[in-house]
Design a binder for these strands. Structure first.
Lengths: 328, 328
DNA sequence: CTGAAAGCGCTTACAG
DNA sequence: CTGAAAGCGCTTACAG
């Protein structure tokens, strides 16, 4: 069934049916009502492919997720994006990048023609050539938390270096002396972590201090959990973890050993995620990112581009903030 | 840029370009090579909307998720669907149902024309009228773990009643005497749980026993966590929880109180999910569902329908199995 | 307010 | 092996 069937049944032209579909005011109320009745009666659903091909907008934004589908951080980001889009009359479709090593070329192609703009989450799956391709296709694209910055694309990120600085400063001002640093990298690289580390070091230097001990996790809950012994025996009085997930792993280990937090050991994270019930259990002190603002900025920029061809920024950095919990 | 630009640049017709795109053998190798070179050089990406409109298949399956995006159970199911689809040359796009109360009408419409088949996960967002609509649109549709069974749709589910029976039998044969039952329903209905309960009761009757105490959680981790005291003071020696998530909440509470498991209290779950690090921490005994098989069945059935118009079943039930962990 | 016509970017019989 | 032509189901200037 197509728009012509509806037109015939309603005794109007397909132009009129199309107008009813798009809620145009160029239709007499009675006509509109009659056509709508036929649409409902026949259960007509317009073909989005045809609409997209004929018109310009589809009111759909496509999200390519580089991390796993169950990542708590990006899961929250996705929810926020969906929310912002809905508020503006846009739908959202997702896909997960299949083979991160080769970028997300396949996913970009799969989406082309189905959506009005791309959002690519994280750095895990996107390569420069992918971004160039989308720009070349003249499609709006936003990179969320990627280190790639390119003409024609909007990159939105948090100032990790500044966040790292903030973390060290906070621990120092709370009077901690022997400060440990838990890195996320080990098996794989972790650029965001490296930036956080750079800021952390800079603050330590500004205060004439040094990192007491370096620990190396792997950005997984269990890996930092298994570092509990190592941390305890090192005798540091505070640990900064490059991600909350690592902080929770460590906290879990410390809790099982009955360690007093933050008296015996303070733990500071980075991300401000909700993770299972952990966030209620521990009330982690952490470096927060204004995710809601960041997401709102991305969605607004893309829609302005889609609807008014208004250019967006090349790079927008957001500042972090201290989330004072009970672990520092 | 479109297929005509490519055709001109390569000095062939657009028919030939189209053939190269679809890897047709009706193209002389040299021609093919020449065209491919132009495609690569110009960075041409075919418009999926136009392809879908002109041809028939898009090699994309759309998934509508009724649960939250971070649900561990459906997250795993989605991953498996993506995997199976890829193995067969299909891509996958997701969307999350926005307003569960009204079904997923909007999401169905958004996907129409973009995909070759629908998969709807869980019962939370789908209503009979939604399924009827898709059937009426003559699109293949599979319902994964929904109670809805309708002509034209494939429903794949696990035999919850039989699983409940299996659960009770297992606890009884392990010698437990005072058996508690933790229901998932409280604030909202939970059909799957009710089926599990029916099977559980049937087994108890067959063995001439009765449920000692009923507990009422709410299918959330924290809710069963808060029931810990109540369970302990009731003096049951085993508890069956309608979902693993509830079982983990209870286990977390029991662990914090240092309760010996399964000696003092046995805990049996249902679902066999991976949940954060809990599954490594506790090694839960549970009733498993053959998810991999179920997913493979769904994907295969849909693709057979898409490609060969081969009809699929109306309902396919899978049997559960005991996953012997260390908590019973 | 309404409709005939052109066009969006492809694919696929059909003819060669 | 190659291409001209029709058609997929819509939308939107244009003319009335």
């Amino acid at each position: 069934m197509n728009i012509i069937d509806v037109a015939k049944e309603a005794g109007v032209s397909k132009t009129t049916v199309s107008r009813v579909l798009s809620n145009s005011k160029l239709v007499k109320p009675e006509t509109k009502e009659k056509v709508q009745e036929v649409i409902d009666r026949l259960g007509f659903v317009p073909n989005t492919s045809a609409q997209k091909l004929a018109g310009n907008k589809n009111y759909v934004i496509g999200i390519i997720n580089g991390s796993t589908i169950n990542d708590p951080f990006y899961g929250y980001v996705e929810e926020r994006i969906a929310l912002e889009c809905r508020n503006r009359g846009y739908g959202v479709i997702y896909t997960v990048a299949r083979d991160k090593m080769v970028g997300c070329d396949r996913e970009i192609s799969m989406f082309y023609g189905k959506i009005d703009a791309y959002i690519i989450l994280s750095d895990e799956c996107v390569q420069e050539k992918d971004v160039e391709k989308v720009v070349h296709m003249r499609m709006p694209i936003a990179l969320f938390k990627s280190k790639i910055v390119k003409n024609g694309a909007l990159s939105v990120n948090v100032d990790n270096e500044q966040g790292g600085y903030m973390a060290a400063k906070y621990l120092l001002e709370k009077g901690h002396k022997k400060i440990g640093y838990m890195h996320g990298r080990r098996l794989e690289n972790f650029d965001e972590g490296n930036e956080r580390a750079a800021g952390f070091m800079r603050a330590m230097q500004d205060y004439g201090k040094d990192i007491a001990v370096h620990f190396y996790g792997n950005r997984k809950f269990v890996d930092s959990y298994h570092l509990t012994e190592e941390v305890l025996s090192s005798n540091v009085d505070a640990v900064f973890c490059e991600t909350d997930l690592m902080a929770y792993g460590l906290l879990q280990g410390l809790a099982e050993k009955g360690v007093a937090i933050p008296e015996r050991l303070a733990v500071l994270g980075f991300d401000n995620i909700k993770f299972s019930n952990y966030e209620t259990q521990f009330s982690l002190s952490t470096i927060g990112q204004p995710l809601e603002e960041m997401v709102a900025y991305v969605v607004e920029s893309l829609i302005n581009k889609i609807e008014n061809d208004q250019p967006y920024n090349k790079l927008k950095l957001f500042e972090t903030n201290i989330v004072a919990g009970k672990t520092v």
